[in-house]
Simulated assay, not measured.
Amino acid sequence: MTTTISKFAHLQIPLKDVVLATDNFHHDNIIGRGGFGPIYKGLLLHSGNLIKIVALRLDRKHGQGDVEFWNEISMLSDLKHTNLVSTIGFCDEKGENIIITTYAAKGSLKEHLNNPNLTWIRLKICVSVARALSYLHYDERRGYRVIHLNINNSTILLD
């Protein structure tokens, strides 16, 4: 595990910064619940810039643990595509395991499906999702393929 931690040390974000960004994990900042646990929005001062973030806070009651957390960090830090959220970093401190990613400002596709103004934009969204899935499944520059298993209108995020 030490080798894994040192490999990703540059992505480490102190717990105090995540607590500050999410207003101490305030319930008003919960924007969803995922397979890892609650998902918070926040504002993080990172590399001198105030950025909107999402903090996925591991809840061990969901059956996830250290192995799943480090697998997720390893995979997410390796994935770079214009149609995927970017990993900013992680927190592994005081029993907390938190993954920090960029915030999708316009929420999920689910929130916009009934919008009548979403005519041609739907096609653009479909093409973008197809490109992201193609990258995850078929990019030969990685030694592995990603199978998401949960593509739906709630997990497709818009910016």
Rank of each mutant, 00 (worst) to 15 (best):
T3D: 13
T4R: 02
T4K: 09
K16Y: 13
V19E: 10
A21M: 02
D23V: 04
F25M: 01
D28Y: 09
N29W: 05
I30K: 03
I31K: 00
R33M: 15
K41S: 13
G42A: 03
L43Q: 03
N49W: 08
N49H: 13
I51A: 05
L56E: 15
K61S: 14
Q64C: 09
V67H: 04
V67R: 09
E68D: 15
S77F: 00
K80F: 01
K80W: 07
L84H: 01
L84G: 07
L84S: 02
L84A: 09
L84C: 11
V85W: 04
S86R: 13
I88S: 00
F90H: 02
E93F: 02
K94C: 14
N97W: 02
N97H: 09
I98C: 06
I99M: 08
I99R: 00
T101C: 10
T102W: 03
G107I: 05
S108N: 07
K110E: 15
H112F: 11
N115Y: 06
N115G: 08
P116D: 10
N117P: 05
L118K: 03
L118G: 00
W120Y: 13
I121Q: 06
L123M: 10
C126K: 07
S128Y: 02
V129H: 04
V129F: 11
V129S: 01
A130G: 15
R131N: 11
H137I: 04
Y138E: 15
E140W: 06
R142T: 12
V146D: 11
V146R: 00
I147K: 12
S154R: 07
I156G: 05
L157P: 02
L157V: 05
